[in-house]
Design a protein around this nucleic acid. Structure first.
Length: 723
DNA sequence: CAGTACGAAGTTTTT
DNA sequence: CTTCGTACTG
């Protein structure tokens, strides 16, 4: 397994050099609980990655013994990446760690555990994990059945999720009784929701953790089995874990005590999903002899950015005081605040300054991170970027999975894996048309409820007199047969869609080419994976990491940006009602505003070199245009911490940045090049035009050549060729 | 039962 | 301004 013994020494050297004393203390920490209290950019992800390698390479632990838990899939991905970079191995394929790595989100790890232990909980091993859409769909149908106003569905969905995060099961909640009005309805829906999931042999995301904890609590033998399998636990971003996740860590790690956590109470931003910063102090009480290590050196932000962010977070009560230091003194750019007239002005300011900075040559597009509070802010920004011709990538649910034909395909796969998944069966029972309309479907669902069987069974029971029923029967048989014959997810989808005539039907719909291409992309992604492996991936990690290498600006919510960093960051929408959000005060017993403050802090501290804060005076929400006041948090930023710019081109307070943009699209007719055009140079090869200046003989062109970097050339002599 | 047309409602934030 | 759900007609 370990290829070279001599590599171990070299690796250790490599890990130790370039790290400060605290970091080395942390990454070589071996036994007993440890807590890293760190500020942003202090290298905690790096230390988690290094310690992993330290344990596996130097201490010869098996990779599967070391459990690394993260909140989001991106953080897990980031850690794996870092380990690859450090060890020189490639994680994407099978390497010397093999598939035995346990670096993943809580949900994914719990899902893996439950795949082994599901029977103990009364679930079949072939359970399906419901994603958000399935969850909402199921709750919606229950509301309809109970004749509860559908508008309540959002509140009910989030309450159910919160209850599970607090480990309050449906029976316990109902047992508490005493509920009137909403609470009573909630209890009723929760009850039905859970029994329905169980009947369908399905779990939602919150179930994964809750049931795993239940399992550990109720079956000591199973707990000790997993305790024995895991000798080291690391948890990243501990400030953001919820009670169920805390219980999981505690149960699994209390006995050995080998729990290593990283936390920053200033970055707790997930209160709305039941996370509690208090788990940090709870950890201190529950575990004995903790080594507490403070990381106060910031390697990411410049002092200017750190000071501004510090001023924002300082107002927050009850936090551990930290004194963060930054060594990056060479760049002295203060953050800038710009307030546009409308959200469109704000967006075009962003797009224009991105372009300007890009043309200057020191930053590639992928060095920019555009962050916002909520996804509604995305559209105007996207539009402005498109208008400027700036490539961008939105970090969100993979658009492929939103396509209806892809959802259908996945539903087919789910039904094959678990015929009792009534929601998925309901989705595909009539596409392509098998003569099962609305009425038949609801009638069959009713029958299924009455008889206490799944939809699959109910369809099977109906007498096969009519033509439609023979079609349905054929489908049901095919589902069973396919499940027995194939394990490969791609093959299953392929077989199902072809044998059911779905592909034929699709080819007669409108836009058949695109949609068939979408299906083929899905099949490609599914191929070579187990059915359950693929479906788990789809419902636990809905993002595609396509075009990873493309040079594009990143767009995402601040929540998604946690743990990431960018040389240039924009925080958009710094307005009352947006950040802090208007719903914030109701949240978390009035502590909601503080969470918004931390949100801004997280956003600001993603920036390495340059930080822009933006907002708008007027913003249209859905149909209404609203006057917006600047965010209250801006008051914490005095002029010496952050300068205010009025308009994109008339920035005077920041001469170091805003040498006014010279060329305003005056594409002189003798200028054969324009920004963004690919050109070929005789010695430097291919490049992209970034800037143009001057006319005629003195015309100059700035080109970025991937091999040699940014060059400014005189057009007269350069002999460039457009390609 | 399927397809179309019109009306309504809806935007925090995530695994 | 969308998307989604319902109602009506063929």
């Amino acid at each position: 397994m370990h290829k070279k013994v001599e590599g171990t020494y070299g690796l250790k050297q490599k890990m130790l050099e370039g790290h400060n004393k605290k970091q080395i203390e942390a990454l070589t920490h071996l036994n007993g609980p440890a807590m890293i209290l760190s500020g942003p950019g202090s290298g905690k992800t790096e230390v988690v990655a290094c310690r992993y390698l330290y344990l596996v390479r130097s201490k010869k632990m098996r990779p599967e013994e070391v459990l690394v838990l993260t909140l989001g899939p991106r953080a897990a991905f980031e850690i794996k990446n870092r380990i690859c970079a450090l060890s020189g191995s490639d994680y994407s394929g099978d390497n010397d760690f093999g598939s035995s790595v346990n670096i993943d989100t809580f949900q994914t790890i719990c899902c893996r555990i439950l795949r082994e232990e599901a029977q103990k909980l009364g679930f079949g091993r072939n359970f399906i994990v419901y994603g958000e859409e399935d969850r909402f769909g199921l709750i919606r149908s229950i509301l309809k059945e109970f004749k509860i106003h559908e508008a309540l569905f959002r509140g009910i969905a989030s309450r159910i999720s919160n209850l599970k995060a607090e480990m309050i099961g449906h029976e316990e909640f109902l047992g508490k009784g005493g509920g009137f009005g909403f609470e009573e309805k909630l209890a009723k829906v929760y009850m039905r929701y859970q029994t329905e999931l169980r009947k369908n042999n399905c779990l939602d995301h919150d179930d994964l953790v809750m049931y795993t904890v239940n399992l550990f609590q109720e079956h000591k033998s199973i707990l000790s089995k997993w305790q024995n399998r895991v000798s080291q636990i690391m948890v990243d971003d501990f400030q953001d874990i919820n009670p169920a996740q805390y219980s999981f860590v505690r149960l699994l790690g209390k006995e050995s005590g080998n729990v290593f956590i990283t936390a920053d109470d200033d970055q707790g931003i997930f209160g709305f999903k039941g996370s509690k910063v208090e788990h940090i102090s709870r950890f201190k009480e529950d575990f004995n002899n903790i080594s507490v290590i403070h990381f106060e050196q910031s390697y990411r932000c410049t002092p200017c950015i750190l000071n501004a962010a510090g001023a924002v977070i300082e107002g927050s009560p009850g936090r551990y005081k930290k004194k963060l230091k930054s060594e990056r003194k060479s760049i002295k750019r203060k953050p800038q605040y710009f307030c546009g007239g409308t959200e469109a002005d704000e967006a075009s300011y962003i797009a224009q300054t991105v372009r300007e900075l890009f043309l200057r040559g020191s930053y590639a597009y992928k060095d920019f991170g555009l962050l916002y509070r909520m996804s509604a802010q995305l559209r105007p920004i996207e539009k402005a970027l498109r208008d400027e011709g700036i490539p961008y990538y939105v970090h969100a649910v993979c658009p492929l999975y939103l396509k209806s034909e892809v959802k259908d395909a996945i539903a087919y796969a789910k039904v094959v894996m678990n015929p009792n998944d009534s929601l998925s069966l309901g989705r595909i029972i009539n596409s392509p048309s098998r003569g099962i309309g609305e009425t038949t479907l609801t009638k069959t669902i009713d029958n299924a409820r009455k008889d206490g069987v799944s939809l699959f069974e109910a369809f099977r029971k109906t007498s096969s007199s009519k033509k439609s029923q023979s079609k349905v029967k054929k489908l049901l048989d095919l589902i069973i047969r396919t499940g027995k014959s194939y394990n490969d997810a791609g093959k299953v989808i392929d077989v199902m869609l072809n044998k059911t005539g779905y592909m034929k039907w699709l080819s007669e719909e409108k836009e058949p080419d695109v949609r068939i291409k979408n299906i083929n992309r899905l099949i490609e992604e599914a191929s070579g994976r187990n059915l359950y492996e693929f479906l788990d991936h789809v419902s636990l990690f809905c993002e595609c990491n396509e075009v990873k290498n493309a040079d594009a600006v990143s767009l995402m919510t601040v929540y998604e940006a946690q743990g990431l960093e960018f040389p240039v960051v924009y925080m958009a929408g710094l307005e009352e009602g947006l950040l802090p959000h208007s719903h914030a005060p109701e949240q978390d017993n009035g502590k909601g505003i503080e969470e918004e403050r931390r949100l801004l802090y997280v956003g600001m501290t993603r920036a390495k070199d340059v930080l822009y804060l933006t907002g708008a005076a007027k913003r249209r929400f859905y149909t209404r245009v609203q006057m917006q006041k600047p965010s209250r948090f801006l008051q914490d930023l005095s002029e010496d911490l952050c300068c205010t710019v009025k308009h994109a081109s008339s920035a005077n307070g920041s001469a170091d940045l805003h040498t006014p943009p010279k060329q305003e699209k005056k594409t002189g007719d003798q200028m054969p090049f324009s920004v963004g055009v690919r050109v070929k140079h005789i010695t430097w090869g291919n490049g992209v035009v970034r800037d143009l200046a001057g006319q005629g003989d003195s015309a100059k062109v700035t080109v970025n050549f991937p091999s040699v970097g940014v060059k400014c050339l005189s057009l007269k002599f350069a002999n460039l060729e457009v390609i």
